[in-house]
Design a protein around this nucleic acid. Structure first.
Length: 940
RNA sequence: GCUGGAGUGGUGAAAUUGGUAGACACGAUAGCCUUAGGAGCUAUUGCCGCAAGGCGUGGAGGUUCAAGUCCUCUCUCCAGCACCA
């Protein structure tokens, strides 16, 4: 037998498959379809590294498996080729970006073909191809016509280095995702798509998707829906009003000041009449200088300036409220203005404390459910600190056998502090002074067993400190009920059991603001109402309206760069903005002399007069073309539809074909697209659904993310670190089959793992053993062990491929080959079945062996083998015998053995017998038998 | 801070969902072989211990005949969002 020569064999079969066009897919209504898709790559100059194909290999395995199971499988590939790197390359080398792009595509394709991913290359597409972007432009025009597109001059994210505007999705921690520059806010003329019109549908339909929870959650987060109310605050002696968005209208009575974002338009309007104009202007200027990152830093102290000379009026009680500007309020969320409720919002509390603003409690935390005929009582609970010993004093109730704060009623003419000090003296004998409140007023409902009444208890908790170490004598009566106890801090946290006391202890060191819900107080006629009801009632009372706010922003869709789809709009003096007529699509990107971005907010296209100057399609008069281009996300938002019908001249996709193939059954790609591509594509798809182009409302039924492959040093593979491994080298040395199998064997598919060339040897050796196993193929004997393992293998590999558990599928196949090696015998039939099962992972070596065994077909066109269920059952099983849960013996017994027989056999075992005697005087209390697995003898 | 996920040998990892923890690999150790290779074969390989045995799935409790798996608390790491009102 020859040594396996992967180079020759792999090339031979690649050629044969290509020639036979085994990859080609056509519609076939007799077969069930399966559309499996990889996120198409951006073809960068660096070529593929070893991490890129991981997802492609996985989809290829599923695709081959599905095909062998009778599905009509669509598995295409294309190129997301617009984008900055190609443009930068063009700038540097003074050649058109398409030249470089095409070179890169050719290189990528060559690399992919070496791995023998079974793509239907006849459906290949590139977003830069005018025949493709014709339909990107067409869809955009449809959006324009539906009023989903608008022009804006509002400040947007501007990358000073890329010299272009960017969408929120293009930022990473306030920096440009591409070049890492800090983003500025700059007013630029922009085209914007109203993706927020779809926010609710994008959010609601997430529930329908078979996606990983983490991705779904990121999308929910990104959309950031929050329900609340818009409420107007009048300005004193003026017709102006401030509109605020709040999720807590129930706390309106607790509003003690207002805050506007420094960018708020009212601030500019009021500037001239402010008493401290200079100070305000200075603050606005400073805020403007701050980067996104600085401003977002929550750990820094809050700052702000009061607008002196204006006051707002609280609509619910006519209180006059001071108005501040502060950079903790953002211009682009909600209405850019808030009502501040320091008692129930941490940020407002911090700010109020710093500027000496009132804190007014309006919500009480509630413990327990309200009971019938409650008897109300006002009380105070105290914990007493002794700074000399560092211990805390509470009391132990002899009656209820529990620890609690020192507790007592607040008498008339007494406040909480007085009552706490008096009660402490009476019950413990210690003289104390007040340190601080641990809680606002809380409300507790419970049955009082001593007094036999339902209690509604209103209380605050306080922290006191002893002023005299020697306690006075406590009355006999008190001592019968309670014992005072001194505890260390950790003991204190351990012993305290009531919810109210526990809640108070959270504020022992830092005062915590209560931001939860509860029952209203200090809110006149709304007192006693719970937060949920009060939200509606108060909003209605002040004439506000319940609204919904989103974190998702509209999609900034224009880029001031060259290498993108031209936005197909025309500016006409007479008619306004008019879309390019359908018959003039595609609007082809013109040649330019310089690709250099102008940096003025105009794209390089603006310099080509003969292109810019055109006639208005509506009135025929002089007009100018829009010169901005689309963002890179445009083409990728719908490319998966084009694979279905890649050469259609008259429609984005043929309706019948779309119905047959859509939606994508399985989509595999990187998790980094969770809130970018995957949001845009869902939006674009829903729009196409609304205008009747597609028949399903969600594009990707099932989504699976790929875990990154890191370099051997644990870092990301990057030119910068010099740790990149090229798949070409690996394939050259070990073969594509070994490469494919190793990538799938490395670990769970969605987990990041480090590349290990040593680790690659495992799968490589496995394939060598498969090659060697052909020696053991013989017609006569059918070995029982081999048969059993084969059945197990067919079953497990099939199941594991469906679950994307490739690593365990491969380990089962390794077990099978190890079995052949041990038994030195396998029938031709069994070996052929095994080759089929292995073929999706290692298509070349299996095809070669298949052919060597005298077959003339292609394995990919074979049927997936069936397994014999009967043959999966073992004749004998090994049972672990435990005594009191510890394994003391193993018994090999016939599979169908009864519990009775097992018991007899187990008890007869010498070791078991010894342990039974040793641990439990030979008395068996219980015998448990789990069929085929374990028997447990419980003694004593 | 919030949300999602994960902690198991020297390493990558398995574990039929409550039933013999560490399958399958990598690496390591010892031996064999020789077409000296990134080869192959055999044996060993969770930790402590000569052994009997004990311990062991981030930590602490709990439920159970039985816990990596369920419950409570807690620590660490990764990812996403983040002054979102």
């Amino acid at each position: 037998m020859n040594r396996y020569d992967h180079k020759t064999v792999e090339q031979k079969w690649r050629d044969a498959w290509n020639e036979a066009k085994v990859y080609r897919t056509t519609e076939d209504s007799n077969k069930e379809k399966f559309y499996i898709l990889d996120m198409f790559p951006y073809p960068s100059g660096a070529g593929l590294h070893v991490g890129h194909p991981k997802g492609y290999i996985a989809t290829d395995i599923i695709s081959r498996y599905k095909k062998m199971n009778g599905f009509n499988v669509l598995h295409p590939m294309g190129w997301d080729a617009f984008g900055l790197p190609a443009e930068q390359h063009a700038l540097k080398n003074k050649v058109h970006p398409s030249i470089n792009t095409n070179e890169n595509i050719a290189r990528y394709k060559e690399q992919l073909e070496k791995i023998s991913i079974n793509y239907d290359w006849e459906r290949e597409l590139s977003t830069t191809d005018p025949d493709f972007y014709k339909w990107t432009q067409w869809a955009f025009i449809q959006m324009f016509k539906k009023g989903l597109v608008y022009e804006s001059n509002e400040p947007i994210n501007w990358c000073p280095s890329c010299k272009t505007g960017l969408a929120n999705e293009d930022l990473e921690d306030g920096r440009c995702e591409r070049c890492d520059s800090e983003i500025e806010k700059k007013p630029i003329r922009q085209w914007i798509i109203k993706i927020t019109d779809y926010a609710d549908r994008l959010l609601d339909d997430i529930d329908k998707l078979d996606w990983q929870e983490s991705i779904k959650e990121s999308q929910r987060n990104w959309i950031g829906k929050s329900e609340g109310a818009e409420i107007d605050f009048k300005i004193k002696d003026s017709d102006d009003k401030i509109k605020v968005f709040t999720t807590r209208p129930d706390t309106l009575f607790g509003a003690t000041y207002m805050v506007l974002a420094p960018e708020h338009s009212l601030v500019q309007e009021w500037l001239s009449k402010l008493e401290n104009k200079a100070e305000v202007e200075k603050y606005i200027k400073e805020t403007g200088k701050k980067t996104h990152i600085e401003r977002g830093d929550m750990t820094k102290e809050k700052t702000g300036v009061e607008l002196k000379g204006v006051k707002a009026v609280n609509p619910v009680n006519s209180d006059e409220l001071p108005i501040y500007i502060a950079d903790y309020v953002m211009a682009d969320y909600g209405t850019g203005a808030i009502m501040a409720v320091p008692a129930h919002d941490e940020r407002d509390y911090e700010f109020a404390k710093k500027y000496g603003i009132d804190v007014r409690q309006v919500v009480r935390k509630v413990f327990g459910e309200p009971l019938e005929n409650p008897v109300p009582r006002v009380a105070v609970g105290a914990v007493i600190y002794n700074h000399k010993t560092g211990k805390y004093l509470i009391q132990y109730s002899k009656e209820f056998k529990e620890h609690s704060f020192v507790f007592g009623g607040v008498e008339d003419e007494e406040d909480y502090i007085k009552a706490a000090i008096r009660e402490t003296l009476e019950e413990t004998g210690y003289k104390t002074k007040f340190i601080k409140y641990l809680t606002d007023e809380t409300e507790a409902h419970f049955y009082h067993p001593g007094k036999k009444v339902n209690r509604a208890l209103f209380s605050r908790r306080v922290l006191l400190e002893v002023t005299d170490d020697t306690p006075e004598t406590v009355s006999e009566e008190e001592l019968k009920k309670h014992t005072p106890v001194w505890l260390t801090e950790s003991e204190l946290f351990e012993k305290i059991i009531t919810d109210g006391d526990k809640f108070a202890l959270e504020s022992l060191h830092d005062t915590k603001v209560y931001t939860g819900k509860g029952n209203l107080c200090n809110s006149s006629k709304f007192d006693g109402m719970n937060s949920e009801e009060a939200k509606k009632a108060i909003t209605e009372f002040v004439g506000g309206k319940m609204t919904i706010s989103y974190k998702l922003r509209d999609w900034v869709f224009a880029r001031q760069r060259y290498w993108g789809e031209p936005i197909p709009l025309i500016h006409c003096v007479e008619c306004g903005v008019v879309p390019v007529p359908d018959d003039e699509l595609p609007l082809v990107l013109p040649e330019v002399e310089s690709y250099e971005p102008t940096g003025t907010g105009e794209s390089p296209l603006a310099g080509i007069d003969e292109w810019v100057n055109t006639k208005c399609p509506s009135c025929g008069g002089d007009a100018k073309r829009e010169t901005n281009t689309m963002p890179q996300w445009a083409g990728s938002s719908w490319y998966y539809l084009r694979y279905i019908d890649p050469h259609n001249d008259s429609a984005l996709v043929d309706k019948e074909k779309e119905k047959y193939w859509s939606p994508v059954d399985f989509y595999v790609g990187g998790a980094e697209h969770a809130t970018r591509h995957l949001i845009y594509a869902r939006f674009w798809h829903k729009f196409l659904f609304d205008i009747g182009v597609v028949s399903y409302s969600e594009p990707f039924t099932k989504l699976q993310t790929v875990g990154l492959i890191m370099a051997e040093d644990g870092r990301k593979m990057s030119k910068r670190w010099g740790n990149v491994i090229n798949p070409d080298d690996v394939i050259d040395e070990y073969g594509a089959d070994a490469f494919r199998t190793y990538e799938m064997f490395m670990g769970p598919f969605d987990q990041a793992v480090s590349w290990s060339t040593k680790g690659l040897l495992g799968p490589k050796r496995f394939l060598d053993k498969v090659w060697k196993a052909q020696e053991y193929v013989n017609e006569s004997t059918s070995n029982n062990n081999v048969q059993k393992q084969l059945n197990k293998t067919i079953k497990k590999v099939g199941e594991d491929i469906s679950d994307m558990k490739y690593n365990t599928a491969i380990s089962q196949m390794m077990i099978f080959v190890n079995t052949i090696e041990k038994e030195k015998s396998v029938t031709k039939n069994d070996f052929e079945s095994f080759l089929k099962v292995l073929s999706p992972f290692a298509p070349h070596i299996t095809q070669e062996l298949w052919s060597k065994l005298g077959n003339e077909t292609f394995l990919i066109e074979e049927q997936w083998p069936e397994y014999d269920k009967g043959n999966l059952i073992e004749d004998t099983v090994t049972i672990a015998v435990q005594v009191n849960g510890k394994v003391r013996a193993e018994l090999t017994v016939p599979a169908g053995i009864s519990e009775k027989d097992i018991k007899v056999l187990a008890m007869a075992d010498e070791a078991v017998d010894n342990w039974v005697k040793k641990t439990g005087n030979g008395l068996v209390k219980q015998f448990i038998y789990i069929t085929g697995r374990v028997a447990n003898i419980v003694v004593q």
